[in-house]
C-alpha cells in the first residue's frame, strides 16, 4: 500500500512537470509544425531566471521568469522562425537546434559551468496516506496541473480556443474567418515555450542547474507529444501521463539504467503497434475497424 502511494506520488510529480512541457511542445508542434528541439533550453532559461533574481520573493520570481520567457520566445519567433515556416519541418528543427546551442552557451558565459541551485520556498514534508512527501513537490505538481487545466479550458471552452483549434485544423480557413494567422502563430509559440520556461522555474528548487540541464527533458517531452494521436491539444497531456507512468513504473521495479533501456524499447513497441499514435477514442476506433471486410 505504502509503495503504491509512493508510486502514485512520484508519478503525479513527474506528470505535473511533463504535462507542462508536453502541452507547450504539443502546441508548437500542432500549430506551427515546429519540432522545438530547444524546448529543454527554455526550461533551462526558466531555472536560471530563478537563480539570477535570487532577491525577488519566489512567486514574484516565477512571474519574472514567465515575462522573460514571453519576451524571449517572441524574439525567437520574430527573428528566426517567421521566415522558416514555409521551408518545412527540417528548417525549423535545425534553427531551433542552433538556438539551443546559443542559449546553452550564453548561459555558460553568464553563469559559468559550475552547478547552481535555487532554494525551495516551501520547506518540510506533508503526510499523504501514511507517506511523507516533500511539500514543495506536491505544491508544484498541483500548480502545474492547474495551469495545464486552465490552458485546456481556454482551448476547449473559449472562443479564443476555438480560433486556435480552427487555425490548427486549417490555417487558410482560419485566415478566411478573420483570425490574423501571424498573431495567432506568434502567440502560440510564445505560450508554448513560456510553458516550458514556467516548468523550469517551478522545478528549479529540485534541480542542479547547469547550462546543459535542458537536454535531458527533450526526449520525454517529445515522446509525450508524439505517442498520442497528434492534432488534439489534450493529446500531449495524456502522453505526459503515459510517459510519467511508464517511467515511474519501470524505475520502481528495475534499476535506473535498465529502466531507461526498457523505456525506449516500450516506446518502439508502442509505436510499432500504433504507428499513428494512441487513440483515446478507442470505442469508435474499434467499431469502424470491425466493419472492415474480414
Amino acid at each position: 500500500m505504502e509503495s503504491l502511494v509512493t508510486l502514485g506520488l512520484s508519478t503525479l510529480s513527474l506528470f505535473g512537470f511533463y504535462a507542462l512541457l508536453a502541452l507547450g511542445m504539443g502546441l508548437v508542434f500542432g500549430q506551427l509544425g515546429v519540432v522545438n528541439v530547444a524546448h529543454g533550453e527554455f526550461v533551462m532559461v526558466g531555472a536560471y531566471a530563478m537563480y539570477a533574481f535570487d532577491a525577488v520573493p519566489f512567486p514574484l520570481r516565477v512571474l519574472v521568469a514567465v515575462v522573460l520567457g514571453v519576451a524571449l520566445s517572441l524574439l525567437t519567433e520574430r527573428a528566426i522562425l517567421r521566415k522558416l515556416y514555409v521551408r518545412g519541418m527540417l528548417a525549423t528543427l535545425l534553427a531551433m537546434w542552433g538556438l539551443a546551442i546559443v542559449l546553452r552557451q550564453l548561459a555558460e558565459a553568464v553563469f559559468g559551468a559550475t552547478p547552481r541551485s535555487v532554494a525551495s520556498p516551501v520547506q518540510g514534508s506533508v503526510e499523504v496516506l501514511g507517506v511523507q512527501y516533500p511539500a514543495y513537490r506536491l505544491v508544484v505538481a498541483l500548480v502545474s496541473l492547474a495551469v495545464v487545466a486552465v490552458a485546456l479550458i481556454v482551448v476547449y471552452r473559449t472562443s479564443l480556443g476555438l480560433k486556435l483549434r480552427a487555425s490548427i485544423d486549417n490555417r487558410d480557413m482560419a485566415a478566411v474567418l478573420g483570425i490574423p494567422p501571424r498573431l495567432m502563430i506568434a502567440g502560440t509559440f510564445a505560450v508554448g515555450t513560456t510553458l516550458a520556461v514556467l516548468a523550469g522555474a517551478l522545478q528549479s528548487p529540485v534541480l542542479g542547474l547547469t547550462p546543459g540541464l535542458g537536454v535531458a527533458f527533450l526526449a520525454p517531452a517529445f515522446f509525450a507529444v508524439l505517442v498520442v494521436r497528434p492534432g488534439s491539444l489534450a493529446g500531449p497531456v495524456m502522453g505526459a501521463l503515459v510517459v510519467a507512468l511508464l517511467s515511474s513504473l519501470l524505475r520502481r521495479y528495475l534499476t535506473e539504467t535498465v529502466a531507461d533501456l526498457f523505456f525506449f524499447a516500450a516506446l518502439v513497441v508502442l509505436i510499432a503497434v500504433r504507428p499513428a499514435g494512441l487513440s483515446w477514442r478507442l470505442p469508435r476506433w474499434s467499431s469502424t475497424r470491425s466493419k472492415q471486410p474480414a
Binding site: 552547478p115 547552481r116 541551485s117 528548487p205 529540485v206 534541480l207 542542479g208 542547474l209 547547469t210 546543459g212 540541464l213
Partner: peptide, 10 residues
C-alpha cells in the same frame, strides 16, 4: 556534475 546537486537537494 549537475546530477550531484539534483541528488543531494532532492
Amino acid at each position: 556534475g549537475g546530477d550531484a546537486v539534483s541528488f543531494v537537494q532532492q
